[in-house]
């Protein structure tokens, strides 16, 4: 198959997902490039895991489309929670490898390699129900890496791992990235996003609030989320032009008519609040915007 030189591995075109009347994702667009890592960041319930499941082909979007450059691209997927299956890690990985069509010798070699890298070789014949959360997470990551996939989808990959294991995983993922694999991961740990991500995709309430791309190291900065009312369109636009402003959206559904949610850098949130009150607006809530107001190039306050 011939590929366009600038064609991404996966292109997400304005996808939406509804469960009944509940809109979980709305108009998400993104490009997943080879050899690059994308961090999906947002609060709980912002739609990160749903987006990852759509990329994995586990959930069908209600609208929009996901275009894979090669429909048969190998995908490795590590879900957030991994159960203690009634297999040993070796039996499980062998089954998964056979299902994926790996040759027995190659499969044995890869299992051995992964066991060594994740320091699980001593437990390869132990039943998984006796494993700790961290050990199960290692098996989870091993199954996702087994096929050396071109697209790696990881839902909270550091969850449950101790510091050395986190370091080991980071090294492995950077290695995979250098080898040309695309990585999309959800994360709450700034450290991981800083070390691995080339692109940060911020979600809030199922919508993209910001996308940051660049090659320089990331400086992540926390934000504040301010819900206010009583502002005219002109005043809203004026606030949106202030330094430190990140994004805004109508929050009519949650708070009633004519309410607006602003995401601003926390360093300017006090000034922003004064500006809202000075404009004759009312403030309904101010919340820390962890995971939704990341920006680059500035130091955290």
């Amino acid at each position: 198959m011939r590929h366009e030189p600038d064609m991404p591995l996966v292109e997400v075109n304005s996808i939406g997902k509804c469960y009944g009347k509940r809109q979980v994702l709305d108009g998400i667009c993104m490009r997943v490039e080879r050899g690059a890592a994308t961090a999906l960041i947002g609060r709980n319930g912002s739609g990160k895991s749903t987006l990852l499941s759509i990329l994995a082909g586990l959930i069908q979007p209600t609208s929009g489309q996901v275009i894979y450059e090669d429909p048969k691209v190998t995908i490795g997927y590590a879900p957030e929670i991994f159960p203690g299956l009634k297999f040993t890690p070796e039996q499980y990985l062998q089954s998964i490898g056979r299902i994926s069509g790996l040759e027995p010798l190659e499969l044995k070699r890869r299992i051995g390699e992964l066991m060594e890298r994740f320091h699980l070789a001593a437990y390869r014949s132990h039943p998984m129900p006796s494993f700790s959360k961290g050990m199960l997470q290692k098996v989870n990551l091993m199954q996702s890496l087994l096929m050396q996939p071109k697209l790696l989808l990881l839902d909270e990959p550091l969850s449950g791992l101790d510091q050395p294991a986190q370091q080991q995983l980071m090294e492995l993922l950077l290695e995979r990235k250098r080898e040309g694999a695309a990585i999309v991961f959800t994360v709450h740990e700034e450290q991981m996003a800083q070390a691995l991500a080339d692109k940060i995709h911020m979600l809030q309430g199922g919508r993209t609030v910001n996308q940051i791309t660049g090659k320089e190291p990331w400086q992540l900065q926390r934000s504040a989320y301010i819900v206010c009312s009583g502002l005219t369109k002109g005043q809203q636009l004026s606030l949106a032009s202030r330094p430190g402003f990140l994004s805004w959206k109508e929050v009519t559904e949650e708070f009633g008519p004519e309410h607006t949610g602003f995401t601003v850098k926390r360093s300017v949130s006090d000034d922003f609040l004064r500006e809202v009150l000075g404009s004759g607006g009312s403030i309904l809530s101010v919340e820390p915007g962890d995971g939704q107001g990341y920006t680059k190039g500035e130091t955290a306050p």
Partner: peptide
């Protein structure tokens, strides 16, 4: 099967 177990196998097969 646990739902997660099913998800992992579906992704490896690339087909539900």
């Amino acid at each position: 099967e646990h739902a997660v177990q099913r998800q992992v196998v579906i992704v490896h097969l690339r087909s539900a």
